[in-house]
Amino acid sequence: MNWIAIWVTFKLASLTAAALLVIGLPIAYWLAYSTWRWKFVVESIVALPLVLPPTVLGFYILVAIGPHSPIGRFYADLVGHPLPFTFEGLLLASILYSLPFAVQPFATAFEQVDRKLIEASWTLGLSKVRTFFKLILPLSTAGLITGAVLSFAHTLGEFGVVLMVGGNIEGVTRTVSIDIYDEVQALNYAGAAKTAAFLLMISYLVLLLVYAMNRKVWAVWPQK
């Protein structure tokens, strides 16, 4: 098994899930509570990675962060090297690619918090921000874990986006799924089988956790 590829993959998946916990919360909060009539426009954009072929998403990200775009140039000027085919570039792509997998469970969890509880918190003098941290977030734990775990698992298996944005650099951007592809191309089926079985096991364990959470088997907060 290619332990370097496994290490790169887990680093990427963990950082993606962690970043989405931070970035996804305000987006999910806005989606759950905004009364803006054009909200569905933003909802659709967030959900786009669900249906877009990964190569298409990867292509646009590559162009957006490449040396010919203002963002790419700005980054290159700031850091000294361009973003494509680096781990950071790959991380950015993974965050965008897994956005709906984090934001949708978060938003669903927020929407399920009884409006009356939130109103009670307001009348007790707590601002919207403090109500979020003292009430909404603790009541949404299951949704937060689901979102984090799903985006982690989704990143583990990404292929097209990685290939487009990260390339295939050993120890930097070569992830497990690319490693498996390489092994098969080299007709090393035994090596591919081991890595594939490992990924299968991890993915299944992750889904096991998500479904158990949603059935409230280990729910952090007991059912009413």
């Binding site: 009356k116 509880l117 109103e119 009348t123 603790p138």
Partner: peptide, 15 residues
Amino acid sequence: RHIGYMAQDYALFPN
């Protein structure tokens, strides 16, 4: 507004 408000079904915080 510094009010005390009680909803019909009490809306106690379950957590």
